[in-house]
Simulated assay, not measured.
Amino acid sequence: MSKREGEGCPRKKKTDSVQKDNCDPNQKVNLTVNLSSPVIDAFKVFQLELDTKHDKYERLVKLSRDVTIDSKRSIFLLHRVTSVSDVEEVLAEADVKLGGVRQKIGLIAEELRGEDLYQFHRAFTPGIQEYVEAVSFHHFIKHRTLISLEDINAKLLFMKDSYSKESTEGQQPVAAHQVLTFQVTPTDYLLGVADLTGELMRMCISSVGNGDMDTPFQVSMFLRQIHDGFSYIGNTGPYEVSKKLHTLRQSLSKVEDACYTLKVRGSEIPKHMLADVFSSRASMIDQDEGVA
C-alpha cells in the first residue's frame, strides 16, 4: 500500500512575512515637553536641593582642611616646650593659635546651622580630630591630665550677628546676637585622643635628648591610663577607634622602653646620646612589629 503523498514528512510551518518599517531614519521626531508639568517642577526642586547640599559639603571640606593645617602648626609649636626655658610663653602663643582654629570651627558651625550634623560629618571630621589632638596636647603640657569632652565643647561657643530686616524704608537693619554651638562627637574625641599618644611619644624622646628625665615617666604613666581606657572599648566601639588602638600600643611600648633604658642604663650612657639610643630602639621595635 503506497504511502500518501506527504505522509511521514513534517509539515512546513508557514511563517508570516515581516513587513519592513518604511520610516525614514533621517526623519526627526517631534517630542514636546511640558515645562509646566508637576514632574518637571519636582525634579527642579530636587536639583536645587542636591546642588545646595554639594556646595555646602565642599565648603565644609575646605574649612576642615584649614582647621587641620592650623592645628598641626599648633602641635609643632607645642613641641618646642622641650627645648626652651620659658614654657609659659610657648603655651600662650599656642593658645592664641588655637583661638584662631576655634574661629574656623565657628564657620563650620555657621554652615551647619539648621542642618543635620551627621549628614555632613565626613566632610569636617578630619579637622575636628586634629583640633582635639592639638587642644589635648596643650592641656597635657599645662596640667599633665587629659582634657574632657565637656571642656572641649565648652570653648566652642560662638557669637554671631544676625540682621532683621525692617519694613520701613530708610531704617537700617537691626543687629541681633545669636549664640552658635558646635559639639564634638564622642567618636571624634576618642580618635583625637588616640592620635595624641603619638605626639606624647615624640615629646618623650625629645625631652630625654634635652636632659629632662622626669617627663618620660610622667608620659608613661599617662599613656598606661589611656591604654586601659581604650582597652575597655576594644572591638565593641567604632571601627576607627579599634583600628588606632594598635598605634596607641606602639607609642606606649616605645615610651616604656625609654623608661627602662633610663632606669637600667641611664648612668652608663651620656645624656646627649640617650635620644639617639631611643630613636634606634624605636625603629627596631617598628621593624619587629612589621611597621613600614
Rank of each mutant, 00 (worst) to 15 (best):
F182H: 07
H143L: 12
K243S: 11
L180Q: 14
N153Y: 00
I128V: 08
T197P: 01
Y189T: 07
E268T: 15
N153I: 01
A154M: 11
D288Y: 15
S36Y: 13
N153W: 06
K56N: 01
V67H: 02
V179H: 05
F140I: 06
I69G: 03
K53I: 00
Q19Y: 12
G234P: 02
L63E: 06
T197N: 03
D188A: 11
G234D: 09
R80A: 04
I147N: 01
H121C: 03
K155Y: 10
R202W: 09
G234Y: 06
D55S: 12
Q103M: 13
V193D: 02
Y260M: 04
Y189P: 05
S148V: 03
D286L: 05
L35N: 06
S220V: 04
Q47D: 15
L262R: 00
M284N: 10
D195E: 07
V135D: 03
V184I: 03
D276I: 07
T187K: 15
R11C: 14
L274C: 00
D66Y: 01
R73D: 15
H138D: 12
K12Y: 15
G6E: 09
A92M: 11
E150A: 13
D286P: 03
V84D: 04
E89Y: 03
L200D: 07
D16A: 14
S83G: 08
K165S: 14
Q19L: 12
D86H: 12
G192F: 07
R224M: 03
P186D: 14
S207I: 08
P186F: 12
H79K: 10
E256M: 00
S85N: 06
Y260Q: 11
A175T: 10
H143Q: 14
V179S: 05
D257P: 05
S36N: 15
L200N: 04
S85I: 03
E169T: 13
S220I: 06
K3A: 14
S37M: 02
P173D: 09
N34G: 11
E166C: 05
P270D: 07
E256I: 02
I205Y: 06
K44E: 08
L31F: 08
L223I: 01
Q225T: 12
A109N: 07
L156V: 01
L156K: 07
K97W: 00
E58W: 00
I105T: 02
G6N: 05
N22C: 13
A92F: 12
K263P: 05
S279L: 13
Q171K: 15
N30L: 15
K244A: 09
E240K: 15
Y163L: 11
T197D: 00
I226G: 01
D21W: 09
Q171G: 09
F43C: 14
E115C: 14
A292D: 05
N153F: 00
S148R: 09
E110I: 09
H177K: 12
D21H: 12
G290E: 10
P270E: 08
I269R: 00
Q250A: 02
K44N: 11
A94M: 03
G209W: 00
R281Y: 01
A42L: 14
A282M: 00
H79S: 13
L77I: 03
S17F: 09
R144D: 07
P25F: 12
N34P: 10
